[in-house]
């Protein structure tokens, strides 16, 4: 039995896509689904489970970008404001009669542009990522309110609501989430540049000696993150009938939490997109489960925060033991 388990983890390692943390989180998701379903059978319905997945989708898409940023040894706390700005751009353009695909593309491009500014400031002006993105957070949030004057964007054309529609019986956001996770996952696993992100986050000096330019990597991860936040904004904006001017407030926390719970180490150099997806799912699941278990939703954030702390403590202890 023991040897079998040993071989199993060996196999996981060789697959690489599943490191230990991912397996643990996946198991936690299954166990939780099972237990909550026992307590309240309504939980285990297709509608509800799909709903959880849809709720997670835009977080998970951004978490894929955040994974790249954190693995490279940086952080981006401007993603919440970025989401608001990109969602507003998509909404405003759509309302003014711009073809919907172009409105969506514009949102994604805007994300990429903001990411490029962040990246340039981190990589070439050498300002710490936390300061850059803190400043960017304020700039975008302020700029958004300046432009929208706090008004909500309503009366959007029917076509706009991409996230409310389904393809082959599965809601569109879920398709996007799966596609992004697979593509980014494959990129980070199989592309040389994807591997360079890990190298720079693990030991920037060694990476430099191996011919990798850390500045290019930083630039790249911030641009990618921006593009993915733009995409997340499209999913988010096209889900409800109105886009609020304070959209995305606190979003950065949800995204970073998802990644960290999924095993992306805040110290850089390790973590996977699948982990970030599973982490985001677990957090959403806890949210929905508490409703089904009739736990006061107001305790939810404390539970989610506790989960973050727990995973971080495990990470710290694990690193210390193996150091």
């Amino acid at each position: 039995m023991a040897t079998q388990a040993g071989r199993l983890t060996q196999a996981h390692r060789q697959r690489g896509l599943f490191a230990q943390q991912e397996a643990v989180i996946a198991a936690a998701i299954l166990v939780m689904t099972f237990v909550v379903s026992l307590a309240n059978p309504d939980f285990f319905s297709a509608t509800n489970l799909l709903d959880i997945a849809v709720n997670t989708a835009y977080i998970a898409v951004a978490a894929a970008g955040m994974t790249m940023v954190i693995v490279s040894g940086n952080i981006d706390i401007s993603v919440g404001s970025m989401l608001g700005v990109c969602a507003t751009i998509a909404g405003e353009l759509a309302r003014n009669g711009t073809p919907i695909p172009i409105a969506f593309l514009a949102a994604v491009a805007a994300g990429g542009l903001i990411g490029a500014i962040n990246g340039a400031l981190v990589a070439y002006a050498r300002i710490p990522a936390i300061v850059v993105t803190l400043g960017m957070l304020s700039i975008l949030r302020g700029g958004l309110i300046l432009v929208t004057q706090g008004r909500w964007i309503e009366s959007l054309p029917e076509e706009f609501f991409f996230s409310q529609r389904s393809t082959l019986g599965v809601p569109n956001p879920i398709w996007v989430m799966i596609a992004v996770t697979i593509l980014v996952g494959l990129f980070m696993k199989y592309h040389r540049f994807g591997r360079a992100i890990y190298a720079v986050g693990g030991n920037a000096e060694a990476a430099r000696l191996a011919g990798i330019d850390p500045r290019r990597v930083y630039m790249f991860v911030f641009v990618m993150n921006g593009l993915l936040v733009g995409l997340a904004a499209v999913l988010y904006a096209s889900r409800f009938t109105a886009i609020q001017s304070n959209a995305g407030q606190g979003f950065e926390l949800a995204v970073i939490s998802g990644a960290v719970v999924g095993g992306v180490s805040i110290l850089g150099g390790t973590g996977t997109v699948i982990g970030a997806l599973l982490g985001s799912l677990l957090i959403s699941l806890i949210g929905t489960a508490s409703i089904f278990l009739k736990v006061s939703p107001f305790w939810l954030q404390a539970v989610q925060g506790g989960l973050i702390l727990l995973t971080v403590l495990v990470d710290v202890v694990r690193r210390r033991r193996r150091a």
């Binding site: 360079a196 890990y198 190298a199 030991n203 990476a207 990798i212 150099g269």
Partner: peptide
């Protein structure tokens, strides 16, 4: 100068 969280194989071949 190694990458502590990457595998032995990758440490050997990083960059090439």
């Amino acid at each position: 100068s190694l990458y502590p969280d990457l595998t032995v194989a990758e440490n050997i071949f990083m960059g090439h």
